[in-house]
């Protein structure tokens, strides 16, 4: 009874508001340099935020950013809490069964293993990865023992404290961490570039084909005029992979 009253109140409260095409963009905000929270403002920033804003401008959409934890990022998309995902999400078959992707906006970015020593046993040891990432799926299929964490920085912390022998993640995410660790973390020899996935794309609900097409067009345009490559170089450094 009370629930119904509250529901009715909620209905009345928001019923009369106007509506325009506003797109809510879901992101994680914990995966630098793809997306992270700016210390100064508390807002999300990063490669995907800059790219997403540019895409929205080109597609003439009104976009706002929404932070959501990684492990519930797809469920919240399909239940329409936001309309797109730009969160360093690799395109793969398993996810395609549930959501659809635009064309990739990065080349197939390699993943990599990082560890405390270059000869860490990544095929028989303990490997940390973020829950429900393609990297976690990959580790589960190798002989290694998978240690799952909900947050990306927890996976790195697990290696630092010896909980795991190695961490497996997108190379671009690990690269600055490895560089700034003063030699504490190193790439695992022979496993510093593991091709995985088809590149990172924007995820959308399968029923949202119209929106997908708009973003696809915008991505194509950015690829053609070179502005996408310029963005990639800006955020991932001079030797980053770019589109041909």
């Amino acid at each position: 009874m009370k629930l119904l009253t509250i529901a009715a109140a909620a209905l009345a409260l928001t019923a009369g508001l106007s509506q325009a095409q506003t797109i809510r963009m879901g992101t994680e905000g914990a995966y630098p340099p793809y997306n992270f929270i700016d210390d100064a403002t508390g807002e999300v920033t990063g490669f995907e935020i800059e790219l997403g804003n540019e895409l929205c401008a080109r597609a003439e959409l009104d976009c706002t950013w929404v932070r959501n934890d990684w492990d519930s990022i797809i469920p919240n998309l399909v239940s329409s809490n936001y309309d797109t995902i730009m969160a360093g999400m690799n395109i793969n078959e398993e996810r395609k069964q549930v959501i659809q992707f635009t064309q990739p906006y990065t080349p197939a970015m390699p993943s990599a293993y990082a560890a405390l020593s270059a000869d860490a046993d990544v095929e028989g040891g303990v490997v940390a990865a973020q829950t429900s990432t393609i990297q976690a799926g990959h580790v589960a299929e190798t002989g290694a023992t998978l240690l799952e964490f909900p947050n990306p920085d927890q996976t790195v912390a697990a290696v630092r404290n010896g909980e795991a022998d190695a961490v497996f993640a997108d190379k671009d995410f690990l690269a600055p961490i490895v560089e700034e660790s003063n030699g504490e973390l190193v790439w695992v020899e022979g496993f510093d570039t593991v091709p995985l996935g088809e590149g990172i794309g924007m995820g959308l609900r399968q029923s949202d084909t119209e929106l997908r097409d708009k973003f696809d067009t915008a991505i194509t345009a950015m690829k053609e005029d070179g502005s996408l490559n310029a963005l990639i170089l800006k955020w991932f450094g001079e030797d980053a992979l770019v589109f041909e």
Binding site: A30, P32, A40, D153, A157, P176, I177
Partner: peptide, 9 residues
């Protein structure tokens, strides 16, 4: 969580 130099602090 550990912060790299992508962050101000």
């Amino acid at each position: 969580g550990a912060k790299t130099s992508a962050f101000s602090y």
